[in-house]
Simulated scan of single mutants.
Amino acid sequence: MMRPLLLASLVTSLVTMAWPPSLHTGADPMLPPCPDTPNCVSTEATRASQRVPTVPFRDAPAAALARAKSALLAEPRTTVTIERDGHLHAECRSFLFRFVDDVDIVVDPVAHVYHFRSASRVGRSDLGVNRQRIARISARLALPPATSD
């Protein structure tokens, strides 16, 4: 009974160790495209079912990146693996099987918005985990409503 679980864990570990994070450094598009599976969401997705909205920011890009890092690290079992040029790449591990999801946040200094991508490395369905993660991060980064005087 333990062998299938051990084998699944070993295969997952090998896949996640060999899988390089997909950091795209070109200006257009800012994020790697989503694959044809439903376990990816992105602000730049071409499919409506995979698209998530950008989030605006008002602060300087460096401060916006610091806020994005805080919002990202508030997610459980998350490690930022790359931080450079207004781009964060992180790995989020699932609780039980330790599956890895790749999360990218880009601070767009021209449009003053955050761009997001969250995708599972393995499998086809994620039961909405990536969309929920980006929704929580977006909520942490959302601008407070304007106050009327």
Rank of each mutant, 00 (worst) to 15 (best):
D108N: 11
D85A: 15
A119C: 04
H87P: 01
K69R: 15
V122A: 14
L141A: 10
S120T: 05
P56K: 06
H112M: 12
R93H: 12
D102K: 03
D104E: 15
P4S: 07
A60E: 15
E44T: 05
A48I: 08
L23Q: 00
V80D: 09
L10M: 01
S148L: 14
D36Q: 10
L96F: 12
T37V: 07
K69L: 01
A135E: 12
G128I: 04
L10E: 00
P144I: 09
P109M: 08
D126Y: 05
S125W: 10
A142R: 13
A111M: 14
V55L: 03
P144Y: 06
A90W: 02
A111T: 13
S138Y: 06
T79K: 11
L6P: 00
A68R: 01
P56E: 10
V55P: 03
L141E: 10
R93C: 03
L141N: 12
V41S: 13
H112T: 08
C40G: 00
L73S: 09
A66V: 00
V11C: 07
R140I: 02
R51L: 15
V110T: 15
M2D: 12
V103H: 04
H24R: 14
S42T: 03
P4G: 06
A62S: 12
D59A: 13
V103P: 10
P53R: 14
V41A: 13
S125Q: 07
